[in-house]
Amino acid sequence: MLARLTGVALAFGLGGCMASRPAPETEVASGTPRERIARLALGRVEFGAVSLIPVRFEHSRISGPFEDASRTLYCVSTHMKGRTFGKAERPKIVVQEDKAASRFRVIDDDEVCTGHRTEPFPELETLGNRSA
């Protein structure tokens, strides 16, 4: 009985923390495009935005910009450590650039990332590991 009450109390407490900080779909225009993409990625749940445990990023990669069906896209991936013990998570997102509004947003289209050359993405590691 006590364990059940503790679990319910913990669930309400964690739910309140997570609900107050939703992951942004778009971001404001400030900084270099790569820094803006890094901040957008770090605001996502899959990149540890609502993690209670500090996370650390290694081997971050970015591809793009590249054109796909008249869209300008970037693909971001990394090895994230901290939320799972001993095994790195490998989050990945696809970011679309809206040049008219000078904004970036996350889209759901993982298939476009295959076959594109990636390069190191130290901006994600610098911004993400600073807070950890």
Rank of each mutant, 00 (worst) to 15 (best):
T72M: 03
M80R: 10
I37S: 11
S20P: 08
C75V: 01
R103I: 14
P120T: 11
S77D: 00
D109Y: 12
E67Y: 01
E97T: 07
F104R: 05
G31C: 05
Q96F: 08
M80A: 11
T78A: 05
G48W: 10
S63D: 07
M1D: 00
S77R: 09
R103D: 04
C17Q: 01
S63F: 02
R103W: 06
E25I: 09
P122M: 00
D110H: 02
E123Y: 07
V45P: 01
R34E: 13
K81P: 14
V76A: 12
S77C: 06
S70E: 09
R39L: 01
A38E: 12
R105W: 15
E123H: 04
T118R: 15
G16D: 05
I93L: 08
L73S: 09
S20E: 00
R39K: 11
G16F: 04
I93A: 06
M18F: 12
L40P: 05
A49E: 15
S102G: 06
I93Q: 07
P65T: 09
D110K: 08
L127Q: 15
T26P: 09
F85D: 06
E119R: 10
A41M: 08
A100N: 06
P120K: 09
A19V: 04
T126D: 08
R34S: 14
L14E: 15
A19Q: 10
H59A: 00
R61P: 10
V106N: 07
L2P: 15
